[in-house]
Simulated scan of single mutants.
Amino acid sequence: MITCFLRYEVDPDKLADFEQYGKMWIRLVNKLGGTHHGYLMPSEGASDVALASFSFPSLAAYEQYRKAAATDPDCQAALAFHEKTKCFRRYERSFFRPVFE
Rank of each mutant, 00 (worst) to 15 (best):
C75F: 02
S43K: 06
F5H: 13
S94F: 12
A70N: 09
V99M: 06
P98R: 15
H36C: 09
Q64H: 11
D11T: 04
L51I: 11
K67I: 10
A16N: 12
Q20E: 14
H37Y: 10
Y65K: 04
V29S: 05
R97Y: 00
L79M: 15
A77E: 11
C87G: 05
M41Q: 03
H36F: 09
P98F: 10
A61M: 04
K31G: 06
K84N: 09
I26H: 00
Y39T: 01
Y8Q: 05
A80Q: 14
L28I: 12
G22Q: 02
H37N: 15
D74V: 01
L40P: 01
M41N: 02
T85A: 03
T71G: 14
M24Q: 08
P73R: 05
Y65T: 02
R7D: 09
M41R: 05
F88L: 01
A46P: 07
A77W: 02
F5Y: 10
L32T: 07
T85W: 04
H37E: 14
I26C: 11
D13V: 06
F54K: 02
L28H: 01
I26K: 05
E83N: 11
L6C: 08
H36M: 07
S47G: 08
H37I: 09
F81Y: 13
F88T: 05
L79D: 15
L79W: 12
T71E: 15
L28A: 09
D72N: 10
K14M: 14
F56P: 06
T71W: 03
A69Y: 01
T85Y: 00
S55M: 03
R97T: 07
A70V: 04
N30Q: 10
D72A: 06
E83C: 06
R97N: 04
K31Y: 04
L40S: 09
C87V: 02
V49H: 07
F5S: 12
F96E: 11
S47M: 02
K23D: 08
F56H: 11
F100T: 14
E63Q: 15
C4T: 10
A16D: 14
W25D: 09
T35N: 10
G34D: 05
I2H: 02
G33F: 00
R90N: 13
A77R: 08
T35S: 11
A78I: 01
A61V: 01
V49C: 08
A80K: 14
H82S: 04
L79F: 13
P57Q: 13
A70P: 00
Y21S: 06
F18V: 04
V29W: 00
T35M: 07
C4A: 15
Q20A: 15
F88I: 04
E19N: 10
E101G: 08
Y91K: 15
D48N: 14
E19G: 03
E9V: 15
R66I: 03
Y8A: 04
F54R: 06
L51S: 06
A50Y: 01
A46C: 10
P42H: 10
T71L: 14
S94L: 15
S94V: 14
A78M: 10
T3L: 05
D13E: 14
C75N: 00
F56A: 13
F100C: 12
F5Q: 10
F88M: 05
F100V: 12
L6M: 13
R27L: 07
F5V: 13
M1F: 05
P98A: 15
S47D: 07
Y91F: 11
L6N: 06
F5G: 08
R93S: 14
V10Q: 03
